[in-house]
C-alpha cells in the first residue's frame, strides 16, 4: 500500500459563486467524494484551477458546515481562473495547511479582529468562530479597512454584524464619495476609538504587510502586549508542504510555521527589507 501523495489535489465542485465586489468572489466548495477534512480559522487550502495554477487561499468560513468557503481576489492567472468558476464547475483543493488564529489561547480576553482589504476573508472565519462561542470572550471588536465603500467584502453580513449588541464593528475606507456615511481614514487610527481593555486583549490582524506594520505599532501604543498580537503573513508559495522552499520568511516556512505568526516572534523580520 502506497502512502498518499501530498501533492495531488482532491476534486471539489463549486456549489456557490458569490460576487463580493468588482474583483473578488467567494466560492462555496463541496468535495466530490468523502468528507472535508476539519480545519481551523486562519488556515489555508491550495486551490487548483484546471490547467492554470494552484494558489494558497485562506478559509473564510468554518469547519463542519459541509462546505469549504474561500474568498478570492482576481489578481493573477490562478486567482482570475478561480474567480471565473461557476456553480457546477470543478476544481482541485488540498489542505488544510498552516497555523491557525489562536482562538483558544485568547479565551477570556477582549478580541480585536482587524482586517484590511482581502484580509477580511481570514478574519471572517475567526469572527464567525468567536460569535459562535461568544461567551468565551470579553468584548469582541471588528475593525475593517478597505479602499472604498464599493470594495467592502461580505456586505450583507457586515450590516448584520453592525446591528449585534455583542459586537463592535468599525468600518473605515481610504477614500469615499460624499454619499458614504461611514468613516474615512485608516485602520490604525480607529484602534484608539474601539472599546477594549488593552491589558486583556488579543488582536488578530490580516491585511497588506504595510497595513499590518502600522496596525501593530498602533496596538502596541494602545497598550496591547506584543505576545498577544497575531499577524497573517504571505510569501510566494508553491507546495504548502514545506518541500519547495519558496515561502521562507527568515527561519520560518510561512506554509508550516505560518501563515499566522505571533508578532513578537517576527517583529525583527517585519522591519527588514527584502527578507
Amino acid at each position: 500500500m502506497r502512502d498518499p501523495d501530498p501533492f495531488v489535489p482532491r476534486l471539489f465542485r463549486v456549489e456557490e459563486a458569490r460576487r463580493e465586489n468588482a474583483d473578488t468572489t467567494t466560492l462555496g466548495l463541496v468535495p466530490s467524494h468523502g468528507e472535508i477534512p476539519s480545519f481551523l480559522p486562519g488556515q489555508f487550502f491550495m486551490l487548483y484551477a484546471f490547467g492554470v495554477a494552484e494558489i494558497p487561499v485562506s478559509v473564510s468560513g468554518l469547519s463542519g458546515t459541509g462546505r469549504l468557503l474561500h474568498t478570492i481576489r482576481a489578481v493573477g492567472a490562478g486567482s482570475r481562473a478561480l474567480c471565473r468558476l461557476r456553480p457546477g464547475d470543478f476544481l482541485g483543493a488540498r489542505g488544510p495547511y498552516g497555523s491557525a488564529w489562536p482562538l483558544d489561547r485568547a479565551e477570556g480576553d477582549d478580541l480585536l479582529l482587524i482586517a484590511g482589504g482581502l484580509g477580511a476573508a481570514p478574519i471572517r472565519s475567526a469572527l464567525l468562530r468567536a460569535l459562535a462561542e461568544r461567551e468565551r470572550y470579553g468584548r469582541v471588536v471588528f475593525l475593517y479597512g478597505a479602499r472604498g465603500p464599493t470594495e467592502l467584502l461580505f456586505r450583507p453580513e457586515l450590516e448584520g454584524w453592525q446591528r449585534r449588541p455583542d459586537l463592535e464593528v468599525q468600518v473605515t475606507v481610504d477614500h469615499a464619495p460624499p454619499s458614504w456615511r461611514g468613516s474615512v481614514g485608516v485602520v490604525p487610527e480607529r484602534i484608539g476609538h474601539a472599546r477594549f481593555s488593552p491589558a486583556h486583549t488579543t488582536a488578530f490582524v490580516c491585511g497588506p504587510e504595510v497595513m499590518m506594520r502600522f496596525t501593530a505599532s498602533a496596538l502596541l501604543a494602545a497598550g496591547v502586549s506584543s505576545e498577544r498580537i497575531f499577524l497573517s503573513m504571505e510569501r510566494n508559495m508553491k507546495c504548502a508542504l514545506a518541500l519547495c522552499g519558496r515561502c521562507q520568511f527568515g527561519p520560518a516556512f510561512v506554509c508550516r510555521e505560518g501563515p499566522i505568526f505571533r508578532y513578537d516572534r517576527i517583529a525583527r523580520l517585519l522591519f527588514l527589507r527584502e527578507i
Binding site: 502506497r2 501523495d5 501533492f7 495531488v8 476534486l11 484546471f50 490547467g51 470543478f90 476544481l91 482541485g92
Partner: peptide, 19 residues
C-alpha cells in the same frame, strides 16, 4: 511530473504518478 489531470464527462480527474 507530479500528477496529471484531465477533463471527463462528469468533471475532472486527477491521475497520480504510478510507482
Amino acid at each position: 511530473r507530479l500528477w496529471q489531470a484531465r477533463r471527463t464527462e462528469t468533471g475532472l480527474e486527477f491521475l497520480e504518478e504510478p510507482s
